[in-house]
Nucleic acid binder design. Structure first.
Length: 872
RNA sequence: GGGCGCAUAGCUCAGCGGUAGAGCGCUGCUCUUACAAAGCAGAUGUCGGCGGUUCGAAUCCGUCUGUGCCCACCA
């Protein structure tokens, strides 16, 4: 961009007629970073404002959802920075354990290798390489978007410092008895070969087959149904309801389990629903969570029949079969023995899948590490209940409570290689030692570190304080914790938000943030979920290249209604690009006419009604936008700015001021100052959403250093209802005459002789502007009015020097007349209704009276216009 | 099975008790001295159905239908 900032407000700057984002965005961003605008200083006297980035996974590049989230956070932090806060937009990325490991494993697979070919150490090295690459891409995308993050504070969940935080918390929780190791049924992914937590399970309705099996011999038989026949090899009981008379005679007996040569007991357990199926349930404690619970209650044996890959381990003819092969093989074998009493029937049921690879999960008995959540979850719930943390929008609060109030212990160990290794050493005689960050692990023969790594959300849960240097007592921590706001998607409420709440309250004894502002998911233009399999995903870079970052940002902000999903289509980005271009050209025009911010704003008495009107509207807009920002109403504030800028400033104020500017002199100088003011403030207001175009124009207009560090506008309190009313009338007259011209088929540029009767009205001052807008020439000697348009106390008489289309006009007016009459009748009806008058608030009654007045005025106007029509 | 939400103009959505709104799209006329990525004018909705509350309901209540999401130990 041009560097003519010093003299720019004295001479019209040379700006091209079209805004080309690519020319300005990159260099501007680098300049902002170089000048250190985005850094945050713990020693600052300013009040802090902190938002941490929801750390993107280093699994590739950012998608539109990230761009959306970043736009919102950037807008919030840019505004706060302008408001004088010591603002920290903490950047960083997440190692994303299982997700990243899977991505790199897929890369390896392309080379025909598995992670086992490399071994743990080499594999992890390989993931670090991938991290460097992915992280670079992500940072590049963030720069393109214009994110004002403190790059000097960039963090990664597996940095030394953050790893230290992980180890510290683990040790503390271990010592407090909040972390323990236990063998339980967990969700096991036979492809990823790891346990996953309950919330990493995606349930889908799958088509299964229900088979009914007969267990036992002779009179002691019972029929059970199952969709997972292969697990019968591990059955160690049949359970029935204690009150179920059908099976009373069997309770306590042992019956024959087919194919195995074993006998199993029939136990009574209230978990069984006698109404469901046969009322008898096969019990496989090693491969089903409910059965495991039954097993505990009845002291049943747990027999594992599937290995970690889902392959049958039980001895016998089925050994080595995959679980799905085994399923049909076992059904076939049972059929051969006459054990199938009801043929397979289709059965749709909910089946858990790995949220990372979609593989059908296998519930599996396994020794894992757990977090005891009870006290942590209670504290996390209380912090919201007592208002220390606000959830926005509020209707998501219930969902949060439902979760934290009904939480099961959290399985935190993963049988992966990429992640924070569990800081526990196992000794040769079964000893277990948890090692803190400053302690030496036990050495000697037989001591080994636990091979598991932690759930990736363990480290993400520490993010609001681990990024600030915890466990050291840093100045950053003192200044920037708790964070002000957390901006994230509602899909992360359980994975991340609730965990941050638990960890923050536990480790810091303080909430992690004051407000959680949930956003929705970005969808395509038809509201469909974006996914690679639908082929409707968008790389934000493509749209930024085509339309500019500002256009993408504005589109995303404009769609951001709290907590609700955001559909976005390329057409909409185009429309935002058009808006940016409109701002560009309006500013160009303003500067060509000498718009300036130099000198004091003239006092109200020196201003025209037009100037007072726009300043009144400007300040009202400042107030509106501020209120909307404080309520995270991005869509509404973007819309308010769009309409204020485009409709009011560009389409009306600029147009109404053109004659003033052309006339020159003192009036032009005053208007140039007002226009400069309006532009200045409007650009400031728009800057957090569209930082690039506003920065370019604002520095040119004002010669100021940068909008990034400029002051956020305050409502001066200036309002002028009279001027607003006056301009409303001007708009009404202009619109009515334009309508007439258009209906009469006059070309927009065609000049028409006209006589304006404005005497005695405030409109007289606007005659020149109205004539210019309406292409009305002075009435000459042989002026002969062919149409007379009375509007709001004024009359515009036009000489079309020829016949007008009387019928078209009569038709139009007749229609308008009918509408006005209807309006009048409605208003009269209301005002004649005693119940209404008695019960309606005065405000509403006044409104109806106003409506009646308008309708009556319209009737007078339209009747006069009809009367003025030439006879045919 | 439980819970939450949504059904408003062709599309995507605001409005949530007092005359139906926006963006895009559509129609017509214009390169009118910033912008055709523009300007001006215009058309389009018994606000899902049915009941109820109210002086008044797109807005509150009930119910039905359709649709989406979250949670759950569906053998």
């Amino acid at each position: 961009m041009t560097e003519n900032t010093q003299q720019s407000h004295h001479s019209a700057p040379e700006l091209p007629t079209q805004y080309t984002p690519a020319d300005v965005e990159g260099p501007l961003y680098e300049r902002w970073v170089e000048r250190g605008y985005f850094t945050a200083d713990a020693k600052s006297e300013k009040p802090p404002y902190t938002i941490v980035i929801p750390p993107p996974n280093v699994t590739g590049s950012l998608h539109l959802g990230h761009a959306f989230e970043h736009t919102l956070i950037d807008a919030l932090t840019r505004r706060k920075r302008m408001q004088g806060y010591e603002t920290l937009w903490q950047p960083g990325m997440d190692h994303a354990g299982i997700a990243t490991q899977n991505v790199v494993e897929r890369e390896l697979a392309k080379e025909g290798k598995s992670r086992h070919d490399l071994g743990r150490e080499a594999f992890v090295e390989r993931v670090w390489q991938w991290k460097a690459e992915s992280g670079g891409q992500i940072a590049g995308q963030m720069r393109r978007l214009g994110n004002g993050v403190a790059w000097d504070r960039d963090r990664f969940t597996m940095d030394e410092g953050l790893s230290r935080a992980v180890q510290t918390v683990f040790k503390k929780m271990f010592d407090d008895g909040l972390i323990y190791r236990a063998e339980r049924i967990i969700n096991w992914c036979p492809r990823c070969l790891t346990a996953i937590s309950d919330i990493e399970v995606d349930y889908q309705d799958d088509d299964g087959e229900l088979v009914s099996l007969k267990y036992g011999e002779g009179e002691d038989t019972v029929v059970v149904a199952t969709t997972r026949a292969e697990t019968m090899l591990g059955d160690t009981a049949v359970a029935v309801h204690p009150d179920d008379e059908r099976y009373a005679h069997l309770i306590g007996k042992r019956i024959v389990l087919p194919l195995t040569g074993r006998t199993i007991p029939v136990v009574a357990d209230t978990h069984v629903d006698p109404e469901f199926g046969t009322g008898a349930v096969k019990v496989t404690p090693a491969h089903d969570p409910n059965d495991f619970a039954i097993g505990l209650r009845h002291d049943l044996e747990s027999i594992k029949v599937l290995d970690e890959r889902g392959v049958i381990t039980a001895h016998g003819p089925f050994e080595g079969l995959d679980r799905f092969e085994a399923r049909s093989a076992i059904v076939a074998a049972l059929r051969a023995e006459g054990r199938i009493v009801a043929e397979k029937r289709p059965y749709v049921h909910s089946v858990g899948h790995c949220s990372r690879c979609k593989t059908t999960l296998e519930p599996r008995l396994s020794l894992q590490w757990w977090v005891k959540v009870e006290t942590l979850a209670e504290a996390a719930g209380d912090a919201v209940r007592d208002g220390r943390v606000n959830i926005h929008p509020a209707d998501l609060t219930q969902r949060y409570f439902d979760w934290v109030d009904n939480l099961n212990d959290w399985c935190i160990s993963r049988q992966l290689w990429w992640g924070h290794r569990i800081p526990v050493w196992h000794g040769p005689n079964g000893e277990t030692v948890c090692v803190g960050p400053d302690e030496q692990p036990p050495s000697g023969e037989g001591w080994e570190q636990d091979t598991d790594v932690l759930d990736t959300w363990f480290s993400s849960g520490l993010w609001p304080f681990s990024t600030l240097g915890w466990p050291e007592k840093t100045e950053d921590l003192a200044k920037f914790y708790p964070n002000a706001t957390l901006v994230t998607g509602y899909d992360l409420m359980f994975f991340w938000v609730a965990r941050m709440m638990m960890f923050g309250l536990y480790a810091m004894d303080e909430v992690p943030f004051r407000t959680v502002a949930f956003h929705g998911m970005v969808r395509d233009e038809h509201g469909k979920k974006m996914s690679k399999s639908f082929g409707n995903t968008v790389n934000p870079l493509d749209w930024m290249d085509k339309y500019g970052s500002d256009a993408l940002r504005f589109t995303l902000a404009r769609g951001a209604n709290p907590g609700t999903d955001v559909p976005i289509g390329e057409d909409w980005v185009q429309a935002s690009r058009n808006f940016a271009n409109k701002i560009w050209n309006a500013a160009r025009f303003a500067m060509m006419n000498g718009a300036t911010i130099e000198g004091p704003l003239p006092a109200a008495e020196q201003l025209s009604a037009t100037d007072r009107w726009i300043l009144s509207r400007l300040n009202a807009t400042v107030a509106d936008v501020n209120a909307l920002y404080d309520d995270y109403q991005f869509a509404k504030l973007a819309d308010a700015l769009y309409h204020f800028a485009w409709d009011e400033v560009f389409d009306w104020y600029v147009e109404l001021s053109k004659t003033t500017f052309m006339a020159g002199g003192e009036g032009a100088k005053v208007s140039a100052r007002v226009l400069g003011e309006v532009l200045d403030v409007t650009l400031r207001l728009l800057h957090p959403i569209v930082p690039f175009v506003t920065e370019t124009l604002w520095t040119t207009l004002t010669g100021g250093e940068s909008l990034v560090v400029a002051e956020w506008p305050a409502d001066s309190g200036f309002r002028d209802a009279a001027a607003e009313q006056e301009i409303a009338v001007v708009q009404q007259v202009v619109t009515e005459v334009r309508r007439f011209r258009s209906d009469q088929g006059l070309q927009p540029g065609q000049k028409v002789p006209a006589r304006l009767e404005l005497a005695g009205t405030a409109l007289a001052a606007h005659e020149a502007a109205m004539r210019s807008l309406l292409r009305l020439q002075p009435a000459g000697e042989e002026f002969s009015a062919t149409a007379s348009l009375p509007v709001a106390g004024a009359t515009v008489a036009l000489d079309l020097s020829g016949a007008i289309d009387v019928e078209a006009e009569r038709k139009r007016l007749t229609k308008d007349l009918a509408a006005a009459e209807k309006e009048k009748a409605q208003a009269l009806g209301k005002l004649g209704n005693e119940a209404f008058l008695a019960k309606a608030p005065e405000k509403v009654v006044d409104k109806i009276r106003g409506r009646l007045e308008t309708a009556e005025a319209d009737l007078v106007r339209i009747t006069a216009q009809l009367a003025a029509l030439p006879q045919t």
